[in-house]
Amino acid sequence: MITVLKQIVSLFVLVIAPISLAAQPVSEPVESPAQYSVTNVVLETSLGDLVIALETERAPITANNFLRYVDEGRLDGTVFYRRMELDWGTQPNGLIQGGTQFDPDRILLPIPHERTTDTGVLHLRGALSMARNEPGTATGDFSIMLQDAPGMNANPDSPDPLWQEGYAAFGYVTSGMDIVEAIHAAPTDPDKGEGWMKGQMLAEPVMIMKARRADTPPD
């Protein structure tokens, strides 16, 4: 059994709970089961396109919040600005993070928290998950998992209220995991970031040039 670090963060960061390697299977990017409705979104980045299936039926609050950011152009011109590496399990492992950061002209009001135990949308490889501080504070920042991260799912049996709630997963990358891995491999700046996040910020953030519904043609 190998237990990994617990990282506590604000809107700028996510938390990775202690996870057992033996309990962490590796999966391919997933598609929502056919019986559930999804809305497909394309993130056009400076390294290539990501196609995302938003779980608008199973995680309607979180997925529709993200879709509003897409439809209103609030993600256009934002960046993937951070990568976190985990040195255990299948490599590369960890997450990338992007979104509106603290831009007051982009962020919308925080949304209610949707537990994975309620939605069934889990933190698997390729999952999108909302960044937040306390549950119910998520706005327009999100992360993408490079490998399965079950420790981020809600755990009602945990003595810690944070882990009882977990993080809100709301969709999956269905095409473009090579782009996710390329972003994760980008160099970081050793002087950027604060506290234990120092060194996790990308030296040259990767731009999200446009976010659009998949049925909307590119400009």
Rank of each mutant, 00 (worst) to 15 (best):
L95I: 10
K210V: 05
G120I: 09
P60V: 01
V70W: 02
L47R: 03
A53E: 15
Q35L: 14
W196H: 12
L202N: 00
G99A: 05
T90E: 15
S46M: 12
L75W: 10
T116M: 02
G199P: 08
P33E: 09
G73W: 10
T216D: 12
Y172A: 00
P33Q: 05
G136H: 00
A34K: 10
G199H: 09
M201W: 15
Q97I: 07
D49S: 15
G151T: 06
L95M: 11
V9G: 14
S27Q: 08
A182T: 11
Q91N: 05
E165C: 06
N93T: 04
F66V: 03
D49A: 14
A59Y: 07
E72H: 02
V180H: 08
D118K: 04
V30P: 12
S143Q: 13
V51Y: 13
G166A: 10
Q7D: 14
P205I: 03
K210P: 01
D105S: 14
S27C: 07
Y167K: 05
S37P: 04
E28K: 15
E55G: 07
Y81T: 08
H184V: 07
T117L: 08
I52S: 07
L47A: 04
Y81E: 02
Q7F: 14
F102S: 10
A168T: 09
T119A: 08
Q91G: 02
G166L: 08
P18H: 06
E85T: 11
T78K: 11
A149Q: 15
A63K: 03
L86Q: 11
V4W: 05
D219V: 08
V42F: 12
L95P: 03
D76T: 08
A168F: 00
D160N: 11
F142Q: 03
A214Y: 09
G73T: 04
S46D: 13
E134S: 06
L86K: 10
R83D: 01
I19A: 14
E85Q: 11
D105M: 11
P33A: 04
